[in-house]
């Protein structure tokens, strides 16, 4: 009991440190948001967005830009710790390694969620999305999607931190494993966006949504647990 409590308090402490550092520097959030904006621009000129494209390719555009932006963010997960050998200090400190993973993972979820929420209005603007209450389930999808990306991504970014080919290796590892989650994210998003089709009566929770959201939740839970268990092996020196 005591152990669990100290694990949580360590996690909170580490998370607070990362968030504070990010708040002062904004060195992860702003480049990621700007990157999503650029990807949306590129897609706009590649596909001529707007009109019916919203329902056909909109969800795919949204999630591919999120995933690519998240790869940048994930690469920075342990960057702050490798300068001045902070990671060694953290490993020597009497804290459970699992809480280090959880702190980094939750941090990544929050960053990605921040990026998603900041760029959703831009996406809506480019695609002429009708704002409305039907968009609410999107936040659940965003949260679970971010959790799925962060679960696998945090583990692999700890691995690739020391690799010569860091920039290459991280996407190569993360992307194939993430495909199932990505499929559910895109499917769930398109179910939600379909609520905005003119003339369609908007429902708050379309029945089709449940299976995709359930799948995402399962993915996030399984891989968070697995990564949490394996994290010890990755950072032991």
């Amino acid at each position: 009991m005591n152990e669990t409590r100290s694990m949580w308090s360590h996690t909170r402490l580490l998370l607070r440190k990362d968030l504070l550092a990010e708040w002062r520097s904004k060195e992860r959030l702003s480049p990621m948001v700007f990157f999503v904006l650029l990807v949306l621009l590129v897609y706009n000129f590649a596909f001529e967005l707007g009109g019916a494209a919203l329902w056909e390719i909109g969800p795919g555009v949204l999630w591919s830009s999120f995933v690519f932006a998240s790869l940048f963010g994930l690469q920075r997960t342990f960057a702050a710790e490798s300068t001045n050998d902070c990671l060694d200090a953290l490993l020597v400190a009497p804290i459970d390694r699992g809480s280090l993973y959880l702190a980094k993972m939750v941090g990544n979820v929050l960053f990605l969620l921040g990026v998603q929420l900041l760029t959703l209005p831009l996406f809506g603007l480019f695609f002429n999305l009708n704002p409305g209450l039907y968009l609410l389930p999107l936040f659940i999808v965003f949260f679970l999607g971010a959790a799925s990306v962060a679960s696998v991504g945090t583990l692999f970014s700890a691995m690739t931190e020391h690799s010569r080919l860091r920039e290459f290796l991280l996407p190569l590892l993360v992307l194939p494993v993430l495909i199932p989650a990505l499929i559910s994210c895109v499917a769930a998003t398109s179910v939600v966006l379909a609520g905005g089709i003119p003339g369609r009566s908007a429902v708050l929770w379309p029945p089709d949504l449940t299976i995709h959201v359930g799948m995402l939740a399962l993915f996030a839970m399984v891989f968070t647990t697995l990564a949490w268990m394996l994290f010890d092996f990755v950072i032991e020196e």
Partner: peptide
């Protein structure tokens, strides 16, 4: 571990 996920999600998709 990811293989069953791939299999199931592809079926959905």
């Amino acid at each position: 571990v990811s293989v069953p996920f791939v299999q199931y999600s592809i079926k959905l998709w």
